[in-house]
Protein backbone atom coordinates (compact mmCIF):
# COMPACT_ATOMS: atom_id res chain seq x y z
CA UNK A 1 0.00 0.00 0.00
CA UNK A 2 1.46 3.31 -1.05
CA UNK A 3 0.72 6.50 0.71
CA UNK A 4 0.31 9.43 -1.65
CA UNK A 5 3.53 11.37 -2.06
CA UNK A 6 5.83 8.48 -1.19
CA UNK A 7 7.72 6.56 -3.89
CA UNK A 8 7.07 2.80 -3.90
CA UNK A 9 9.91 1.00 -2.11
CA UNK A 10 11.55 -1.77 -4.17
CA UNK A 11 11.15 -5.22 -2.60
CA UNK A 12 14.81 -5.86 -1.68
CA UNK A 13 13.86 -8.35 1.00
CA UNK A 14 12.68 -10.97 -1.46
CA UNK A 15 15.98 -12.79 -1.99
CA UNK A 16 16.85 -12.66 1.67
CA UNK A 17 13.55 -14.33 2.59
CA UNK A 18 14.17 -17.12 0.05
CA UNK A 19 17.64 -17.66 1.48
CA UNK A 20 16.28 -17.85 5.02
CA UNK A 21 13.69 -20.41 3.92
CA UNK A 22 16.37 -22.62 2.24
CA UNK A 23 18.72 -22.48 5.23
CA UNK A 24 15.99 -23.16 7.74
CA UNK A 25 14.81 -26.21 5.77
CA UNK A 26 18.33 -27.67 5.83
CA UNK A 27 18.68 -26.86 9.50
CA UNK A 28 15.36 -28.50 10.22
CA UNK A 29 16.40 -31.77 8.57
CA UNK A 30 19.53 -31.81 10.66
CA UNK A 31 17.60 -31.10 13.86
CA UNK A 32 15.17 -33.93 13.17
CA UNK A 33 18.05 -36.36 12.69
CA UNK A 34 19.87 -35.25 15.86
CA UNK A 35 16.61 -35.44 17.77
CA UNK A 36 15.97 -39.04 16.65
CA UNK A 37 19.48 -40.17 17.58
CA UNK A 38 19.23 -38.54 20.99
CA UNK A 39 15.79 -40.00 21.70
CA UNK A 40 17.14 -43.47 20.89
CA UNK A 41 20.09 -42.96 23.23
CA UNK A 42 17.69 -41.84 25.97
CA UNK A 43 15.57 -44.95 25.52
CA UNK A 44 18.68 -47.16 25.75
CA UNK A 45 19.81 -45.36 28.90
CA UNK A 46 16.39 -45.76 30.54
CA UNK A 47 16.39 -49.46 29.73
CA UNK A 48 19.90 -49.90 31.15
CA UNK A 49 18.83 -48.14 34.33
CA UNK A 50 15.59 -50.05 34.67
CA UNK A 51 16.82 -53.58 33.98
CA UNK A 52 18.72 -54.15 37.26
CA UNK A 53 15.87 -52.54 39.20
CA UNK A 54 13.23 -54.74 37.61
CA UNK A 55 15.40 -57.84 38.09
CA UNK A 56 15.89 -56.97 41.73
CA UNK A 57 12.20 -56.49 42.40
CA UNK A 58 11.39 -59.68 40.50
CA UNK A 59 13.90 -61.71 42.48
CA UNK A 60 12.76 -60.13 45.73
CA UNK A 61 9.14 -61.09 45.07
CA UNK A 62 9.97 -64.51 43.66
CA UNK A 63 12.19 -65.56 46.57
CA UNK A 64 10.58 -63.47 49.28
CA UNK A 65 6.89 -64.33 48.99
CA UNK A 66 7.31 -68.13 49.53
CA UNK A 67 8.89 -67.65 52.96
CA UNK A 68 6.21 -65.28 54.22
CA UNK A 69 3.78 -67.11 56.52
CA UNK A 70 2.32 -66.59 59.97
CA UNK A 71 5.37 -68.17 61.62
CA UNK A 72 7.58 -65.68 59.80
CA UNK A 73 5.67 -62.70 61.17
CA UNK A 74 4.62 -63.96 64.61
CA UNK A 75 7.33 -66.34 65.94
CA UNK A 76 10.69 -65.61 67.45
CA UNK A 77 13.70 -67.12 65.65
CA UNK A 78 14.95 -70.67 66.25
CA UNK A 79 18.27 -72.29 65.43
CA UNK A 80 17.91 -75.01 62.79
CA UNK A 81 19.40 -78.38 63.79
CA UNK A 82 20.56 -81.35 61.77
CA UNK A 83 17.31 -83.09 62.66
CA UNK A 84 15.09 -80.16 61.66
CA UNK A 85 17.17 -78.06 59.23
CA UNK A 86 14.14 -75.99 58.19
CA UNK A 87 13.09 -74.88 61.70
CA UNK A 88 14.11 -71.25 61.38
CA UNK A 89 11.29 -69.80 63.43
CA UNK A 90 10.16 -66.29 62.50
CA UNK A 91 11.53 -62.79 62.65
CA UNK A 92 8.98 -61.16 64.95
CA UNK A 93 11.87 -59.99 67.13
CA UNK A 94 13.39 -58.07 64.21
CA UNK A 95 10.06 -56.60 63.08
CA UNK A 96 9.30 -55.40 66.59
CA UNK A 97 12.92 -54.29 67.02
CA UNK A 98 12.86 -52.21 63.84
CA UNK A 99 9.55 -50.59 64.81
CA UNK A 100 10.78 -49.89 68.36
CA UNK A 101 14.08 -48.48 67.10
CA UNK A 102 12.40 -46.15 64.65
CA UNK A 103 9.80 -44.99 67.17
CA UNK A 104 12.39 -44.22 69.87
CA UNK A 105 14.74 -42.63 67.34
CA UNK A 106 11.87 -40.44 66.05
CA UNK A 107 10.98 -39.37 69.58
CA UNK A 108 14.58 -38.24 70.06
CA UNK A 109 15.29 -36.78 66.62
CA UNK A 110 12.06 -35.10 65.48
CA UNK A 111 11.65 -32.40 68.17
CA UNK A 112 15.34 -31.51 68.20
CA UNK A 113 15.70 -31.67 64.42
CA UNK A 114 12.61 -29.56 63.68
CA UNK A 115 13.51 -26.90 66.24
CA UNK A 116 17.10 -26.81 64.99
CA UNK A 117 15.84 -26.44 61.41
CA UNK A 118 13.58 -23.53 62.38
CA UNK A 119 16.51 -21.89 64.16
CA UNK A 120 18.71 -22.34 61.07
CA UNK A 121 16.03 -20.79 58.87
CA UNK A 122 15.22 -17.82 61.08
CA UNK A 123 18.64 -16.87 62.41
CA UNK A 124 21.51 -15.15 60.65
CA UNK A 125 23.92 -15.60 63.56
CA UNK A 126 27.43 -17.06 63.41
CA UNK A 127 26.23 -20.01 65.48
CA UNK A 128 23.58 -20.78 62.86
CA UNK A 129 26.07 -20.83 60.01
CA UNK A 130 28.39 -23.10 61.99
CA UNK A 131 25.48 -25.42 62.82
CA UNK A 132 24.43 -25.46 59.18
CA UNK A 133 27.89 -26.62 58.07
CA UNK A 134 27.95 -29.23 60.86
CA UNK A 135 24.57 -30.67 59.91
CA UNK A 136 25.40 -30.72 56.21
CA UNK A 137 28.62 -32.59 56.98
CA UNK A 138 26.82 -34.96 59.33
CA UNK A 139 24.14 -35.69 56.74
CA UNK A 140 26.85 -36.94 54.42
CA UNK A 141 28.88 -38.82 57.02
CA UNK A 142 29.10 -42.63 56.77
CA UNK A 143 26.45 -44.16 59.00
CA UNK A 144 28.84 -46.54 60.80
CA UNK A 145 30.19 -43.39 62.51
CA UNK A 146 26.86 -42.96 64.33
CA UNK A 147 27.11 -46.56 65.54
CA UNK A 148 30.64 -46.01 66.75
CA UNK A 149 29.58 -42.85 68.55
CA UNK A 150 26.60 -44.57 70.19
CA UNK A 151 28.85 -47.44 71.23
CA UNK A 152 31.41 -45.21 72.88
CA UNK A 153 28.93 -42.75 74.40
CA UNK A 154 25.94 -44.89 75.49
CA UNK A 155 27.62 -48.20 76.15
CA UNK A 156 31.14 -47.34 77.28
CA UNK A 157 30.61 -43.91 78.90
CA UNK A 158 27.07 -44.22 80.28
CA UNK A 159 27.25 -48.01 80.88
CA UNK A 160 23.70 -48.48 79.57
CA UNK A 161 24.41 -51.70 77.73
CA UNK A 162 23.51 -53.11 74.31
CA UNK A 163 19.90 -52.05 73.89
CA UNK A 164 17.17 -50.55 71.74
CA UNK A 165 18.01 -47.24 73.40
CA UNK A 166 21.60 -47.33 72.18
CA UNK A 167 20.49 -48.31 68.67
CA UNK A 168 17.79 -45.66 68.47
CA UNK A 169 20.28 -43.08 69.72
CA UNK A 170 22.57 -43.95 66.82
CA UNK A 171 19.63 -43.72 64.38
CA UNK A 172 18.49 -40.43 65.94
CA UNK A 173 21.93 -38.94 65.34
CA UNK A 174 21.65 -40.15 61.75
CA UNK A 175 18.17 -38.63 61.29
CA UNK A 176 18.87 -35.36 63.03
CA UNK A 177 20.72 -33.49 60.24
CA UNK A 178 18.33 -34.79 57.57
CA UNK A 179 15.34 -33.45 59.52
CA UNK A 180 17.08 -30.18 60.38
CA UNK A 181 18.07 -29.48 56.77
CA UNK A 182 14.68 -30.32 55.28
CA UNK A 183 12.93 -28.24 57.95
CA UNK A 184 15.22 -25.32 57.23
CA UNK A 185 14.46 -25.50 53.51
CA UNK A 186 10.69 -25.76 54.06
CA UNK A 187 10.65 -22.82 56.46
CA UNK A 188 12.79 -20.72 54.13
CA UNK A 189 10.44 -21.54 51.26
CA UNK A 190 7.51 -19.88 53.02
CA UNK A 191 7.06 -16.69 50.99
CA UNK A 192 8.26 -13.50 52.65
CA UNK A 193 4.96 -11.87 51.66
CA UNK A 194 3.11 -14.10 54.14
CA UNK A 195 5.36 -12.97 56.98
CA UNK A 196 4.80 -9.37 55.91
CA UNK A 197 1.05 -9.93 55.83
CA UNK A 198 1.27 -11.15 59.42
CA UNK A 199 3.41 -8.20 60.47
CA UNK A 200 1.03 -5.76 58.81
CA UNK A 201 -1.80 -7.24 60.88
CA UNK A 202 0.09 -6.42 64.06
CA UNK A 203 1.29 -9.95 64.80
CA UNK A 204 4.40 -10.40 66.92
CA UNK A 205 7.21 -12.35 65.20
CA UNK A 206 6.78 -15.46 67.37
CA UNK A 207 3.06 -15.55 66.52
CA UNK A 208 3.88 -15.34 62.83
CA UNK A 209 6.30 -18.25 63.22
CA UNK A 210 3.73 -20.38 65.03
CA UNK A 211 0.52 -19.49 63.21
CA UNK A 212 1.69 -18.69 59.69
CA UNK A 213 5.15 -20.00 58.90
CA UNK A 214 5.02 -23.41 60.59
CA UNK A 215 1.59 -24.44 59.26
CA UNK A 216 2.64 -23.38 55.77
CA UNK A 217 5.93 -25.28 56.03
CA UNK A 218 4.37 -28.28 57.79
CA UNK A 219 3.90 -30.56 54.80
CA UNK A 220 7.51 -30.05 53.76
CA UNK A 221 8.70 -30.74 57.30
CA UNK A 222 6.60 -33.92 57.53
CA UNK A 223 7.96 -35.10 54.19
CA UNK A 224 11.52 -34.62 55.42
CA UNK A 225 10.78 -36.45 58.68
CA UNK A 226 9.26 -39.42 56.87
CA UNK A 227 12.21 -39.66 54.50
CA UNK A 228 14.60 -39.54 57.46
CA UNK A 229 12.70 -42.38 59.17
CA UNK A 230 12.69 -44.48 56.03
CA UNK A 231 16.42 -43.97 55.66
CA UNK A 232 17.00 -44.95 59.29
CA UNK A 233 14.84 -48.08 58.98
CA UNK A 234 17.08 -49.53 56.31
CA UNK A 235 20.37 -48.85 58.09
CA UNK A 236 22.45 -51.78 59.36
CA UNK A 237 25.76 -50.17 60.19
CA UNK A 238 24.75 -47.80 62.99
CA UNK A 239 22.74 -50.44 64.90
CA UNK A 240 24.89 -53.55 64.51
CA UNK A 241 27.46 -52.35 67.03
CA UNK A 242 25.01 -51.49 69.79
CA UNK A 243 21.75 -53.50 69.82
CA UNK A 244 23.21 -57.00 70.34
CA UNK A 245 20.68 -58.66 68.02
CA UNK A 246 18.34 -59.96 70.73
CA UNK A 247 16.35 -63.08 69.86
CA UNK A 248 13.23 -62.26 71.89
CA UNK A 249 10.37 -59.89 71.17
CA UNK A 250 10.72 -56.76 73.26
CA UNK A 251 9.51 -53.18 73.13
CA UNK A 252 11.55 -52.24 76.21
CA UNK A 253 14.15 -49.53 75.50
CA UNK A 254 16.81 -51.17 77.70
CA UNK A 255 16.49 -54.70 76.26
CA UNK A 256 18.72 -55.98 73.48
CA UNK A 257 16.73 -56.02 70.25
CA UNK A 258 17.21 -57.02 66.66
CA UNK A 259 16.42 -55.18 63.44
CA UNK A 260 15.42 -56.29 59.95
CA UNK A 261 18.57 -55.15 58.15
CA UNK A 262 20.78 -56.67 60.86
CA UNK A 263 18.95 -60.00 60.57
CA UNK A 264 19.52 -59.97 56.81
CA UNK A 265 23.22 -59.43 57.47
CA UNK A 266 23.36 -62.28 60.04
CA UNK A 267 21.21 -64.79 58.11
CA UNK A 268 22.91 -64.19 54.79
CA UNK A 269 26.19 -65.54 56.12
CA UNK A 270 24.57 -68.55 57.85
CA UNK A 271 25.54 -72.09 56.79
CA UNK A 272 21.85 -73.14 56.89
CA UNK A 273 20.13 -72.81 53.49
CA UNK A 274 16.80 -72.31 55.28
CA UNK A 275 18.10 -69.19 57.04
CA UNK A 276 19.63 -67.88 53.82
CA UNK A 277 16.27 -68.33 52.10
CA UNK A 278 14.57 -66.42 54.90
CA UNK A 279 16.64 -63.30 54.17
CA UNK A 280 14.59 -62.69 51.01
CA UNK A 281 11.41 -62.51 53.06
CA UNK A 282 13.01 -60.10 55.49
CA UNK A 283 14.26 -57.95 52.63
CA UNK A 284 10.78 -57.92 51.12
CA UNK A 285 9.24 -56.77 54.41
CA UNK A 286 11.90 -54.08 54.77
CA UNK A 287 11.31 -52.82 51.24
CA UNK A 288 7.56 -52.79 51.95
CA UNK A 289 8.15 -50.64 55.05
CA UNK A 290 10.28 -48.16 53.13
CA UNK A 291 7.86 -48.16 50.19
CA UNK A 292 4.90 -47.30 52.42
CA UNK A 293 6.89 -44.53 54.09
CA UNK A 294 8.05 -42.93 50.84
CA UNK A 295 4.54 -43.20 49.45
CA UNK A 296 3.28 -41.33 52.50
CA UNK A 297 6.02 -38.75 51.99
CA UNK A 298 4.97 -38.29 48.37
CA UNK A 299 1.35 -37.80 49.35
CA UNK A 300 2.36 -35.17 51.90
CA UNK A 301 4.57 -33.44 49.36
CA UNK A 302 1.77 -33.24 46.80
CA UNK A 303 -0.51 -31.86 49.49
CA UNK A 304 2.02 -29.09 49.90
CA UNK A 305 1.76 -28.15 46.25
CA UNK A 306 -2.00 -27.90 46.50
CA UNK A 307 -1.74 -25.55 49.46
CA UNK A 308 1.10 -23.66 47.83
CA UNK A 309 -0.88 -22.06 45.03
Amino acid sequence: MNVAGLAPTPDTGHELRAEIRRTSQNARARRVLVSRVMMTLCAVAITLAAVPLVMLIFELLQKGIPVLDTTFFLKEPQSPTLLSPNATGGVSNAIIGTLALSIYASIMAIPVGVLAGIYLAESDSKLASVLRIVSQTMAGAPSILMGLFAFSFIIQDLHIGFSALAGSFALAVLMLPVIAISTEISVRNVPQTLREAGLALGAKPHKISLKVVLPTALSGIVTGVILAISRAIGETAPVMLVIAGGYTDSWKPLDPVSALPLTIFMNAKSEWPSLRAQTWGIALVLVAFVFVLSLTARIWASRKQKVGN
Binding site: T193, A197, L199, L201, G202, A203, I208, K211, P215, T216
Partner: peptide, 30 residues
Protein backbone atom coordinates in the same frame (compact mmCIF):
# COMPACT_ATOMS: atom_id res chain seq x y z
CA UNK B 1 -0.30 -1.71 62.47
CA UNK B 2 -3.77 -2.39 63.76
CA UNK B 3 -4.65 1.27 63.08
CA UNK B 4 -2.84 1.41 59.72
CA UNK B 5 -3.69 -1.70 57.69
CA UNK B 6 -1.99 -2.85 54.52
CA UNK B 7 -2.90 -4.63 51.31
CA UNK B 8 -0.03 -5.92 49.19
CA UNK B 9 0.77 -6.06 45.49
CA UNK B 10 0.02 -9.75 45.12
CA UNK B 11 -2.87 -11.31 47.00
CA UNK B 12 -1.28 -13.07 49.98
CA UNK B 13 -3.97 -14.79 52.03
CA UNK B 14 -2.57 -17.32 54.50
CA UNK B 15 -2.68 -20.53 52.44
CA UNK B 16 -3.26 -22.95 55.31
CA UNK B 17 -6.14 -20.96 56.78
CA UNK B 18 -9.78 -21.01 55.76
CA UNK B 19 -11.57 -17.93 54.44
CA UNK B 20 -13.04 -17.35 57.88
CA UNK B 21 -9.68 -17.79 59.64
CA UNK B 22 -8.05 -15.40 57.19
CA UNK B 23 -10.69 -12.76 57.79
CA UNK B 24 -10.23 -12.86 61.57
CA UNK B 25 -6.47 -13.59 61.58
CA UNK B 26 -5.55 -10.03 62.57
CA UNK B 27 -7.92 -10.14 65.53
CA UNK B 28 -6.55 -13.49 66.63
CA UNK B 29 -2.95 -12.26 66.30
CA UNK B 30 -3.95 -9.49 68.67
Amino acid sequence: RSRVGMVFQRPNPFPTMTIYENAVSGLRFN
